[in-house]
């Protein structure tokens, strides 16, 4: 494990320049978009004095050349300062930290659901290959893959909240509800059901397809015949010998999709008014609130780097042939 620790440390160190590269690229890309925060604020606040606008630009540091702004930004990041969101009258760090937990909860539950449902569906489809079950799973997977997640979300909302009244329409908790800790957890869980399914089912559909293909591929391999020749039952063959090997492509995909899931959560958070980081960054892009966009993306890239590392560690546990370098 000591070797693993060293490898993890090395990987994290290697990630530092990657993250800074991402920062620089995003910074430059953002600055290619027309308009800046001051334009938007001036429009919202009806500032009519061009001199005032220049003062504000100077105050926000937007009057300097791009490369100076970038250098300043990187310098601040090195000092763990993500800058100030003038729009929110709050440091970027505070703005993000306030909203991050909601997104992390939504994403982790969605991913867990996606892996569990998708994985299980894939395994069942592969065991019952070319039967009614298999076809049914394929059709459902195609529906959830093809239908836009916001539409799925809205339909769930109409069905489960408006028609059946089973679940709260949106938000993360009941406003003004005074609960015990257990009550609060239950309350958030009820609010979490629809958004996490709406976000997770798309990925579940992908995992189901990949899992099925992977299971079928592995089930044709020699060592599976060996397992059968030992006299193992089909369930044990499937869940021990096939599944463990078939998980590898799913885990790979999982690592790759962490980033896209962050993007997908923007849509779902918007539909379900989930107070996460997705809606925040969407708004920030529209208003050219670049320190905040940068902050969120920086968080996001660090999250992806860490998650990928975690995926590699899982991969290593799943497949002894792979070693972390």
């Amino acid at each position: 494990m000591n070797r693993t620790f060293l490898a993890v440390r090395r990987r994290l160190l290697q990630a530092v320049p990657v993250v800074f590269g991402i920062v620089a690229i995003i910074f430059l890309l953002l600055n290619l978009s027309p308009g800046d925060l001051v334009d938007v604020m001036a429009a919202e606040e009806q500032i009519s004095d061009p001199q005032v606008l220049e003062q504000i630009r100077a105050e926000y540091g937007l009057d300097k050349p791009i490369y100076v702004q970038l250098a300043n930004y990187v310098w601040n990041i090195v000092h763990l300062d993500l800058g100030y969101s003038f729009r929110h009258s709050q440091p970027v760090w505070d703005v993000i930290v306030e909203r991050l937990p909601a997104t992390l909860i939504l994403m982790s539950v969605s991913m867990a659901l996606a892996l569990f449902i998708g994985g299980l569906a894939g395994v069942v489809a592969s065991i019952k290959v070319n039967t009614l079950y298999d076809n049914l799973i394929s059709v459902v997977a195609i529906i959830f893959f093809a239908a836009p997640s916001f539409w799925i979300g809205l339909m769930m909302m109409v069905l489960f909240s408006v028609k059946l009244g089973l679940l709260p329409v949106s938000g993360m908790y009941t406003i003004g509800g005074d609960y015990s800790l257990a009550g609060e957890i239950w309350d958030v869980t009820r609010h979490l059901v629809m958004p996490s399914f709406a976000l997770g089912l798309f990925y579940a559909a992908i995992y189901a397809r990949v899992m099925r293909a992977s299971m079928l591929e592995v089930s044709g391999l020699d060592f599976i015949r060996t397992a059968r020749a030992k006299g193992l039952g089909e369930k044990r063959v499937a869940f021990k010998h096939i599944l463990r090997n078939a998980l590898l492509p799913v885990v790979t995909l999982f690592g790759l999709q962490l980033g896209t899931m962050l993007a997908g959560s923007v849509v779902i958070e918007s539909v379900f008014s989930w107070p996460g980081i997705g809606t925040l960054v969407f708004e920030a892009v529209l208003t050219r609130n670049f320190p905040l966009v940068m902050g969120v993306l920086l968080f996001g890239s660090i999250l992806v780097v860490i998650a990928n590392l975690a995926v590699d560690l899982v991969y290593m546990r799943l497949d002894p042939r792979i070693e972390l370098r």
């Binding site: 391999l221 020699d222 015949r225 060996t226 030992k230 006299g231 463990r244 799943l318 497949d319």
Partner: peptide, 28 residues
């Protein structure tokens, strides 16, 4: 039946396959 056959396989009749490189499960 398949279930009865499972009790025979690996127990009363065992088999060694041609490809040792691929006949063992790599993850155990």
């Amino acid at each position: 039946s398949e279930h009865e056959m499972q009790k025979i396989r690996g127990n009363e009749i065992a088999m060694v396959f041609q490809e040792p490189m691929t006949s063992l499960n790599p993850v155990f």
